[in-house]
Simulated assay, not measured.
Amino acid sequence: MKSSEFIMKFKSWYLWGNILAMIAVVIALIFGVRYGLDLYTHHGEAIEIPNMKHMKYADALHILNDKGLEMEVSDTGYVKNLPADCILEQSPAPGTKVKSGHIIYVTINSNHSPTLTLPDIIDNSSLREAMAKLTAMGFKLGNPEFVTGEKDWVYGVLVKGKHVVVGERISIEDSLVIQVGNGMRSAEDDINYIDPVEQPFETEESDVDEFDVVTSPEPTPTDPKSETPQKPANP
């Protein structure tokens, strides 16, 4: 290609038009990404989270939706003096500024008290061991009830006056009464000693051994004719 032809193509409006179009596309991409990200991330937007503690769940949800925020229950708790479905805790904390669409996690009050499973302590542990285990699990304990049995040994558990078994679920609001031995033996466990039967004294007659007298047979007499003659002695 001659230099004059190259210069003529370089001066062509078609070439410059393509170059300008590419520059415009690049500029549009730069501004689009910049302002698009700001729009997507709500740059500069700040919504203050209201205090929803002890508020009914439905009321709090309505307030957050009006502000463009969302709410999700993350956990449940139990406070006896508060109504069910009221909010106990929230995260983020009240007053925190967030962007629209942010999720607020809340803990709501349950309509019934939580329950715990009774561990294997009946006839398997001492009073001290049972109390330590139950207290660590969160059970409420009443005064022990002493029953007849081995001292400090757990024989049963009562809830509201009724016996409960291992594995049964019990409300944390209920008090457990541990039945523990008082160290006294039950009458059923007493050993009954029986005096031996006395044998009557033996009399003199009983000392005599009774036996049959056995006599030997008498010798049979020998026939003189059948006797063997004696040999004469040598002179």
Rank of each mutant, 00 (worst) to 15 (best):
209 D>C: 00
227 E>W: 01
188 E>I: 01
185 R>N: 13
219 P>N: 08
192 N>T: 15
206 S>H: 07
179 Q>M: 13
204 E>N: 08
226 S>C: 00
214 V>K: 14
192 N>W: 05
187 A>Y: 09
218 E>L: 15
213 V>A: 12
215 T>W: 10
211 F>W: 02
193 Y>K: 06
200 P>R: 06
206 S>N: 11
180 V>A: 14
216 S>P: 02
197 V>I: 13
201 F>E: 15
207 D>H: 06
179 Q>P: 00
216 S>K: 06
182 N>W: 07
192 N>C: 03
225 K>M: 05
207 D>L: 07
216 S>I: 01
210 E>Q: 12
225 K>A: 14
210 E>C: 01
213 V>R: 06
194 I>D: 08
204 E>I: 04
208 V>N: 10
207 D>E: 05
202 E>M: 11
203 T>P: 00
180 V>L: 09
189 D>F: 10
191 I>A: 05
203 T>Q: 04
184 M>A: 13
222 T>N: 01
194 I>G: 04
223 D>R: 00
184 M>H: 13
191 I>N: 07
224 P>L: 01
180 V>M: 05
182 N>A: 03
197 V>A: 09
218 E>M: 11
225 K>N: 10
219 P>I: 02
200 P>M: 07
208 V>D: 03
184 M>P: 00
215 T>I: 05
221 P>M: 03
225 K>S: 07
202 E>W: 10
181 G>A: 12
181 G>T: 06
190 D>V: 15
224 P>R: 00
186 S>M: 03
223 D>L: 02
192 N>F: 12
200 P>V: 10
183 G>M: 12
189 D>A: 15
180 V>H: 09
203 T>C: 02
221 P>V: 07
196 P>D: 15
189 D>K: 14
213 V>M: 11
213 V>Q: 10
219 P>Q: 09
180 V>F: 08
208 V>W: 02
203 T>F: 03
205 E>I: 07
182 N>R: 11
203 T>W: 04
198 E>D: 14
212 D>G: 00
194 I>A: 10
194 I>C: 00
181 G>R: 04
220 T>A: 08
185 R>A: 12
180 V>E: 10
223 D>K: 01
216 S>W: 04
199 Q>K: 12
181 G>Q: 07
202 E>I: 13
222 T>Y: 02
203 T>N: 08
216 S>D: 09
187 A>H: 04
222 T>V: 09
198 E>K: 09
221 P>L: 01
222 T>E: 13
222 T>M: 04
217 P>K: 05
182 N>P: 05
193 Y>H: 09
187 A>W: 09
197 V>D: 11
209 D>Y: 01
215 T>G: 02
200 P>E: 14
210 E>R: 04
213 V>L: 12
197 V>P: 03
227 E>N: 08
225 K>Y: 08
199 Q>S: 12
210 E>V: 08
180 V>W: 11
204 E>A: 10
217 P>T: 07
191 I>K: 13
202 E>H: 06
226 S>G: 10
220 T>Q: 12
198 E>W: 05
189 D>Q: 14
190 D>F: 14
210 E>D: 05
205 E>W: 01
196 P>V: 06
